[in-house]
Design a protein around this nucleic acid. Structure first.
Lengths: 210, 210
DNA sequence: TGACAATGAATGAACGTTCATTCATCGTTC
DNA sequence: GAACGATGAATGAACGTTCATTCATTGTCA
């Protein structure tokens, strides 16, 4: 129970970031005040400025955190025994980890921010390139791709489609009414997404028409 | 050149909305001040309040305008001779009509707003349902679907995938650096999107593997 | 002159940021 | 181990600024 904090100032930083993502998901970056964050974290406003230069820096740090979270997620996905299981790990993480659309709301906001802030855009592009590189790799090594059951499309092209659908379903996620649970949203999204995966990696045994 | 204004107060409204979308795309809803909008429109701040109750109302009106634009776009797409051409009209409109990512930045912002504002969420969901209904219809009537070359998927399921990829590509659009032209972005997006369409409506003549 | 369109200075609330101050903790000294 | 000084994490009131909104005033046309 009693954790020994390795670096207390790191704990403070992540405590603040944890509070920040809750506020950002609830209100968005620019409608969240520093007082909101401090209240959510249970600390004073001034203390935030001991750990972050300004509000911009909090947003940037959140984007960085998102980058390393995706990196970890990718590593975890690579462990999965089949391509399909890897894809499921990757593309439904945002439904379960935090309960109510916290992550998807944050990511949509991040893209909105990226459209105006080139620094954020670079970072998001970087995250995307890394993740897509990883998935392209996963696809290349998969038996599905090596057996040639990919409609003559390159692994890279398949990855592009998979990511497009994933982003599209994430956008849809923020439209779902609050009363829908994470599990429900996950199921709905998996339904659509799996349809694409099956199509892309169709084992030619099943006939398209009976 | 000299238009006869049918209703001058309607013109004022759309003049303000025109200025607003430029500002919103440049800075986002909540970083845009009423002064920004009035300056862009070339009018005074106070005048905006003659036509809109408050800032929220401007955002809502913009969302409404978006709804009717999509409606018109759908009607135009329905006129096209083939399914593929209909889809191209629908899903690249945001690349050409306004020059530099204005529309895609606005739409991503709109989704971000929808994640917090249930009223906006309802409206966006409504737009989406209408558009998807239209496309589902287009697909049903298309020779591609009627010849059964759709992998046993329902028109509705095909539409879901098409819209997911479209939203995903729209998100990608806001990440593209400013120096990329609308035409370039359009080409890139069409490449990926067409790949999906060909896959979904594959004429079984072309073999997957040579 | 009357009716209405349009202006932009004025208002007050809210925000990001600063900083003087507090106080628990720790090392040092006897 | 008791007394004391130093440290810096933490506080929150205060500051300057920005912003949405209001409204007294001016301009315009019939």
């Amino acid at each position: 129970m009693s954790q020994v904090p390795s670096d207390p100032s790191l704990d403070r930083r992540s405590q603040i970031l944890e509070a920040a993502i809750v506020c950002f998901a609830k209100r968005g970056f620019h409608q969240t005040s520093m007082h909101d964050i401090s209240a959510e974290a249970g600390i004073s406003v001034g203390l935030i400025y001991r750990y972050f230069a300004n509000k911009e820096a909090v947003i940037s740090a959140m984007a960085d955190r998102h980058k390393s979270e995706i990196q970890e997620l990718l590593d975890r996905a690579k462990q999965a025994p089949t391509l399909f299981e890897s894809l499921e790990i990757l593309f439904t993480a945002h439904c379960c980890e935090n309960s109510p659309k916290v992550l998807s709301a944050f990511v949509v906001d991040l893209y909105a921010e990226a459209s105006r802030n080139p620094q954020i855009a670079d970072l998001v592009r970087d995250v995307l390139d890394t993740a897509m590189g990883g998935v392209t790799d996963l696809i290349s090594r998969s038996p599905e791709a090596q057996s040639g059951a990919t409609h003559g499309l390159e692994p890279h092209e398949l990855a592009e489609l998979i990511f497009a659908v994933a982003r599209g379903m994430l956008m849809l996620d923020v439209l779902q009414p609050q009363e829908m649970t994470s599990a429900e949203r996950r199921t709905r999204q998996l339904e659509v997404t799996r349809r694409l995966w099956r199509l892309l990696f169709k084992t030619e045994s099943e006939p398209a028409y009976a």
